[in-house]
Every structure is written in structure tokens, then in C-alpha cells.
């Protein structure tokens, strides 16, 4: 049978995947159906207009009056983003550093598997799990599209999903790479969550002031939603950055783990 480590990783974690999928479905269901009474509501718009513009820019709530802007601002860019980052960083950490600190990686690597193989197969398992989460979110958004009057295009939801998944994969691979380099959970988790948090802050700063606009270019958060894929469709540059850097981080992780001593 092929990919024994990927299948093992998926078999070990289907319960947690199910819980996360339910959580993400809950987050979508919490916000998206309320579009008619919030984003599309004139009173709400008046309320938002009365808030300081800096706050609106920080929350990325500028386009909240359209269906695409609303879903991107409330789910993909906010609550869904937080959930995505937490699970991606946790899974990326668990793949090497968490397993190593727990002491169970030693026995797996003492069997007939290579270290590069281990990193690649476990990265694939994370990709599969994040893809499941992305499909659950995207599918539910489409299901709410007509009832909530969002006016979304299927192709744009696919584009948004690819960018959102790309950010999750970037967080996971950053955690994987730092875990493979250091063998320490805390570093892996810091890297995985740090990519998202720093990206969010850089994006928020760049939104405030045209002088800081260059910061957008280095913000993974901006790579995800800066080009508004849910409204505008596929964002080739953002996708290339998110997925390209992720691929490089997987390579770093594989080479790093192959070269060093296993921690005990």
C-alpha cells in the first residue's frame, strides 16, 4: 500500500478533523446567513459609517455592504481566518516537533521509513485535512448564497478557497519547517501562528496610511484577501506567493530533519 504515514496520520486524527470541520461550519453559519440584516442593512451601514475609519480599515470591513465583501470580511478574513491559523499551526507543529518532543517519533523513524519521506507524507496529510476544511467552508458559503442573497459566483468562491487554503498551508508549513529545524514545539507553534499574526498586523498598518502601503507586499494576510478574490476572482500573485513559499518550507523541513540528530 502507498503512503503509509499519510494514511496513519489521517487515521489518527479524523476525530479532531471532524470537530474542526464542525467548528468551521458553525462559524460560517453564525455570520453568513445574517448578511441581509447586517451587511445589506442600511441601519448597519449607518452604524459602520459612524465608527472611526481606522477601525473599519483594521477589521477590513470596508466592503461589508456587498455579499462578497461581507463574507470575506466576516468569515474568510476574520473568524474563519483565526480558526484556520490555529488548526494549521497545531497540525504543522504536531507533524514533527510535537511527535518528537512526545518521544514517539523515535520509534517511527527506527522503522523502515526515511526522514524526507516522513516530512513529505505528513505534509500531504495536513494538506488533505486543510482541504477538507476548505471544502466544508466553501460548500456551506455556496449553500447560503441564494437564501442570504449574497450574489456570489462559484468560480470566485473557488478562488477565495484557494487563497484561504494557501494561507493555512503557509502557516502549517512554517510550523513544520521550524519544528524540523529545531525539534521544539514552542518554536514550531510560534512560527506557524506568527506568520498569520504578523501578516495580519502588517496588513492592518498598511491599510491605515498610504505611506505604509509597501507593507502589503510582505503580508501573507494581504496575499490571501488583498485582491478580494471572493469579488474579483483568482489572484495569481497572491496564490503564487502563498503556495510557492509553502512548497519551499516543506523542502526546508525535509532537508533539515534529514540532516540533524533526533532530540530525545
Amino acid at each position: 500500500m502507498i503512503l503509509p504515514l499519510t494514511r496513519r496520520a489521517l487515521a489518527d486524527s479524523w476525530r479532531s478533523l471532524l470537530v474542526w470541520a464542525l467548528g468551521v461550519a458553525g462559524a460560517v453559519s453564525l455570520y453568513v446567513p445574517l448578511y441581509p440584516s447586517i451587511g445589506g442593512n442600511a441601519d448597519m451601514q449607518a452604524l459602520l459609517d459612524s465608527l472611526p475609519p481606522e477601525l473599519i480599515k483594521t477589521l477590513n470591513y470596508e466592503d461589508i455592504a456587498t455579499g462578497a465583501g461581507y463574507v470575506q470580511s466576516t468569515f474568510y478574513g476574520l473568524l474563519g481566518f483565526v480558526l484556520l491559523v490555529i488548526m494549521a499551526a497545531a497540525w504543522g507543529t504536531g507533524a514533527v516537533a510535537g511527535d518528537e518532543e512526545a518521544g514517539s517519533l523515535e520509534l517511527t523513524l527506527a522503522h523502515g521509513v526515511g526522514r524526507v519521506q516522513l516530512v513529505l507524507e505528513r505534509a500531504l496529510a495536513i494538506l488533505v485535512k486543510l482541504l477538507v476544511i476548505t471544502l466544508v467552508a466553501g460548500g456551506l458559503v455556496l449553500a447560503y448564497d441564494a437564501p442570504a442573497g449574497l450574489g456570489l459566483e462559484v468560480g470566485d468562491v473557488a478562488a477565495m478557497s484557494a487563497s484561504w487554503l494557501g494561507l493555512g498551508v503557509l502557516c502549517a508549513t512554517a510550523a513544520l519547517a521550524l519544528g524540523a529545524l529545531t525539534g521544539r514545539r514552542v518554536w514550531a507553534l510560534t512560527a506557524g501562528a506568527g506568520v498569520a499574526v504578523v501578516g495580519y498586523v502588517l496588513n492592518a498598518l498598511a491599510n491605515q496610511n498610504a505611506d505604509l502601503d509597501d507593507l502589503h507586499a510582505v503580508s501573507p494576510y494581504y496575499w490571501m484577501v488583498g485582491a478580494s478574490p471572493l469579488a474579483e476572482g483568482w489572484d495569481g500573485r497572491g496564490l503564487a506567493l502563498l503556495w510557492g513559499i509553502s512548497a519551499a518550507l516543506v523542502a526546508v523541513a525535509a532537508l533539515a530533519l534529514a540532516r540533524r540528530d533526533l532530540k530525545s
Binding site: D12, R15, A102, S104, E106, L107, A110, H111, S264
Partner: peptide, 11 residues
């Protein structure tokens, strides 16, 4: 191989 500090986990 049997490790000296055997850690087995998982459901």
C-alpha cells in the same frame, strides 16, 4: 528496535 523510553500514543 525497542527504545529505552518507549512512548506510544494515539487512539
Amino acid at each position: 528496535y525497542l527504545p529505552g523510553e518507549l512512548t506510544l500514543q494515539g487512539r
